[in-house]
Design a protein around this nucleic acid. Structure first.
Lengths: 245, 245
DNA sequence: ATCCGTTGCTGACCTATGTTATTGTTCGCG
DNA sequence: CGCGAACAATAACATAGGTCAGCAACGGAT
């Protein structure tokens, strides 16, 4: 029930002291946001680091004429922008998709935790590197893949990320984003997302209905997406997609 | 002539000790790579951090069927992947575009420099955050902009980045990438890049010939690209595009 | 000086995805 | 338990950008 802990332990074993330090930091200042509310806005001075506890959110950028690109999804265990305090102002927005519960960490809390707990520091570093790797993969996704491939890829990624924090049930998970959100994340229109989802369903790869996703054929989905999980860097304890996916 | 120093000083003043520490670190182990050679490959264990001294390189990912996405360009002063040692294996390639001179830093050199020089550490942090911000902007670029806008945007960004390390001469700079490279970076085919460059020339925005770029109408180019420089976070000393761009 | 591989340029044609519009469905809320 | 606003589904049509093909220009090696 502390998804950050779960996630960091996908990278390294933590001591009992580490674990309770994370619990303390994350328990202190929990905030809630209504669905579709912004949690942070472009142009603002960065105020806090959020640790997602419940719900989905996204990082997005907009163009002056209203086009919008979701550049990342946040699910429980994710944290937005460690060390962002160094920057003067936000260059993007963070918006809640569903209702969100998130722990707010001030810069001093972060500093203290990292000074006293080197393994946490290392794990947070790993987490940052994975975040950037994901961002790169999104650039690849949007730049080179077809609609069918893009959506398959997004589904693979999100499913695996949810699984590392224990939010999947067998082959299913909550998937509370709209077709418009999927479009904004993949550089497609919602109309075309709809068409493509129909195809994916028709090909027996997934089922997506009422905010609930079921993966019917993971192997096929991976093949369709040309999905390679190496960028999630989950192989520290010998884990790999082939081993138990 | 130490572009890393120049770049970090775009963020913060450095002491004389800081500056010579950078010089020492960057002077120690300089390597050269021929044009179009890979500097690091996907799947390899990360061995070193490179500081670009001369030439252009890129970070790229490929799909099994050969499609390729350039996810970042490296120019002098850029450094690839501080702290990458934490990860087991590379999830992307780094390739030289032109002939490249780069300083190779081992993990201990990096650690020593950051332990002894807190301002350098802060500046390197800033640099990492900017790198990620650039990556996000590329996702936006490829996901939402038209071909004309994408290429304009790329040109704006690279010109500004080259300017911060003193590699522009008035409105011109070296621009040694092929139309295929531009296509791989923007998610377009080289044919369409060619068509679009013709349009940009026709509209009197840029001149691009024989690996040399001249910006004829920066204001127009920015407008066309809907370019907002905030993601480069150059405003620490009051610098901003409007002030002296 | 000449040759050959790479890069740039162009035209004809094609297709994946965007646009616009309409209707049906779901769901939170009073 | 019924209303209104999101959201999903589809259809008809439009277009930005891809594909394929060929030739021209350049530049480094011999």
């Amino acid at each position: 029930m502390n998804p950050l802990k779960t996630k960091l332990e996908a990278f390294t074993r933590l001591s009992e002291a580490d674990r309770s330090a994370i619990d303390r930091a994350v328990g202190r200042n929990v905030r809630t946001f209504a669905a579709r509310r912004d949690m942070a806005r472009e142009g603002e001075r960065p105020r806090a680091v959020y640790v997602m506890l419940e719900g989905w959110a996204c990082r997005y950028k907009t163009l002056p004429d209203g086009r919008r690109q979701i550049v990342a999804f946040f699910v429980p265990g994710d944290l937005c922008d460690l060390n962002i305090f160094i920057l003067k102002e936000m260059d993007h927005n963070v918006g809640a998709i569903t209702a969100v519960r998130a722990a707010e960490l001030g810069r001093h809390e972060v500093e203290r935790m990292t000074e006293e707990h080197p393994r946490i520091t290392r794990a947070l570093w790993w987490n940052e590197l994975v975040t950037v790797a994901v961002q790169r993969d999104w650039t690849l996704n949007v730049g080179q893949r077809s609609a069918y491939e893009r959506i398959s890829h997004l589904v693979c990624e999100m499913f695996l990320r949810l699984r590392t924090v224990g939010l999947t049930q067998g082959d299913s998970c909550d998937f509370p984003i709209t077709q418009t959100d999927i479009g904004d994340a993949t550089g497609l229109t919602s109309v075309h997302v709809n068409r493509t989802l129909k195809e994916l369903r028709g090909d027996g790869l997934i089922e997506l209905k009422g905010r609930r996703l079921t993966i019917l054929d993971f192997a096929g989905l991976r093949r369709a997406a040309m999905f390679n999980d190496n960028y999630l860097h989950l192989d520290h304890e010998g884990r790999h997609l082939d081993a138990n996916g």
